[in-house]
Amino acid sequence: MSGTKKDSHWIPLADLMTVLMVIFLFMSISYMALVEKRQKEQNQIFKDYEESKITLYNELNEAFKNDFAKWDLKLDNDLSIKFTNPQVLFPTGKSDITPHFQSILTDFLPKYLSVVLQEKYKNKIAEIRIEGHTDTKPIGLTNDPYIDNMKLSQDRGRNVLAFLRSQKSFLYLHPTEKERLQYWLTANGLSYGRTVDKDYKLSFESKQAVNNDKSRRVEFRIVTTSETIIKEALKNIE
Score class of each variant (00 low, 15 high):
Lys122Arg: 09
Lys137Cys: 02
Lys124Ala: 15
Asn123Gly: 07
Gln118Leu: 03
Ile147Phe: 07
Ala126Arg: 12
Asp155Ile: 00
Arg129Asp: 14
Met150Lys: 09
Lys137Leu: 15
Ser153Gln: 03
Asn123Met: 02
Glu119Tyr: 06
Asp155Val: 00
Thr142Trp: 10
Thr142Val: 05
Lys151Phe: 14
Lys124Ile: 06
Asp144Asn: 15
Asp148Phe: 08
Gln154Val: 06
Asp155Thr: 02
Asn143Pro: 00
His133Phe: 15
Pro138Val: 07
Leu141Gly: 00
Gly140His: 02
Ile147Ser: 05
Asn143Phe: 00
Lys122Asp: 08
Glu131Ala: 06
Lys120Cys: 04
Thr134Gly: 13
Asn123Ser: 06
Glu127Trp: 05
Glu131Gly: 08
Lys151Asp: 03
Pro138Ile: 11
Lys124Trp: 03
Ile130Trp: 01
Tyr146Ile: 10
Ser153Gly: 03
Ser153Asp: 05
Ile130Phe: 03
Asp155Arg: 06
Glu131Tyr: 10
Gly140Trp: 07
Gly132Phe: 02
Lys120Ser: 04
Asn149Met: 03
Asp148Trp: 04
Asn149Phe: 06
Tyr121Cys: 06
Asp135Met: 12
His133Tyr: 12
Asp148Arg: 06
Ile139Thr: 09
Ile130Val: 14
Arg129Ala: 15
Asp148Thr: 08
Glu119Gln: 09
His133Gly: 00
Leu141Pro: 00
Ile128Lys: 13
Arg129Tyr: 03
Leu141Ser: 02
Pro145Thr: 09
Gly132Met: 07
Arg129Phe: 05
Thr136Phe: 08
Ser153Pro: 01
Thr142Gln: 09
Ile125Ala: 08
Asn143Thr: 07
Asp155Trp: 03
Ile147Arg: 08
Lys151Asn: 12
Asn143Gln: 06
Gln154Ala: 09
Asn149Pro: 05
Asn123Pro: 01
Lys122Gln: 12
Lys151Thr: 12
Lys124Arg: 10
His133Cys: 06
Asp135Ile: 12
Pro145Gly: 13
Pro145Trp: 13
His133Arg: 11
Asn149Tyr: 08
Gly140Thr: 05
Tyr146Lys: 13
Lys137Val: 13
Asp135Trp: 14
Thr136Tyr: 10
Ile125Ser: 10
Ile128Cys: 11
Gly140Leu: 02
Tyr121Asp: 07
Pro145Cys: 13
Lys120Ala: 01
His133Pro: 00
Leu141Met: 04
Asn123Gln: 05
Lys151Glu: 11
Glu127Lys: 15
Ile128Met: 12
Arg129Gly: 13
Ile125Phe: 03
Ile139Asp: 00
